[in-house]
Amino acid sequence: MPIILNATIAAYFLAVAIPLYAQKPPEAVDLSLFPAQAIDDVLVPVPSEIFIVLDKLGNPNWRSELRDSLGRQSGNRAQVALLLGTVIAEGFVAVEAEDPEKVKDIGRRVLTLSKAINVEKAVLERSKSITDKAEVKDWISVRKEFDGALQDVKAAMQELGDDDLAQLVSVGGWIRGTEVLTSIIRKNYTSDSAELLHQPALVNFFTKKLDNLSNKRLAEDDLVERIRKLLAAITPLIGNGEGEVIPSENVTRIHKMTRDTVAAISSKGA
């Protein structure tokens, strides 16, 4: 009830609000005047932010994008964190495919992988909620739960002092999301859909994070090194300037690179 009341009050105020402080923002700003640290961090978009654009551009066959296997985990924490990222990204694909069984399977796998890196408690409720909401096909809520699971896992890792590991979860998710994105674009290439790959700030953000991992073992991990190379190879392929056309060959190359990297992450324990 209080939540409904709050939402109603907020809706009312935002709908009828007369600006209390009617100061028009400047039409243009000099971004170089902002301190570097203020604009260094970027919120990593969840895959569904891109997937819903693809839905608007066409009618992708999401079921065909789902992987049969969610990969195997090893005792290597870097691999588990990266794999967890790919599995959560898979959750967003399964939501698009509206496949309740796959979503439930992924929810359970998120829990298993979280246990392997001691953050199981953080996602216990989320995992249960994913299963319950998939059962009734409440896809909007399932999507929200996967987003929440991602944030909870990262927050729990940061609380344990494992900020490096939290970054790897994000990177793993981004790579799997990009693999799916490029798979769909290359099947029905248009310059509009390819423009979705123009993500220089994100690639730069991940590159910096991986270059500055404080944990030496993680920094020197083979998979992490492989991903550094992947990011360096992707950078020139995603367009330098906004609106620059990303050709179909680049999409195919990015797809192959991300597909191989996801396969490497998923088979590490095999």
Binding site: A38, D41, L43, E49, D147, L202
Partner: peptide
């Protein structure tokens, strides 16, 4: 989104945060 930015600022202070946005959304 469940993720968020946050902090504290003095009066007249500004902070810029970066976001990756997608045409079509």
């Amino acid at each position: 989104r469940e993720d968020a930015w946050g902090g504290d600022l003095g009066v007249k202070d500004q902070q810029a945060v970066q976001a990756q946005l997608f045409k079509g959304n």
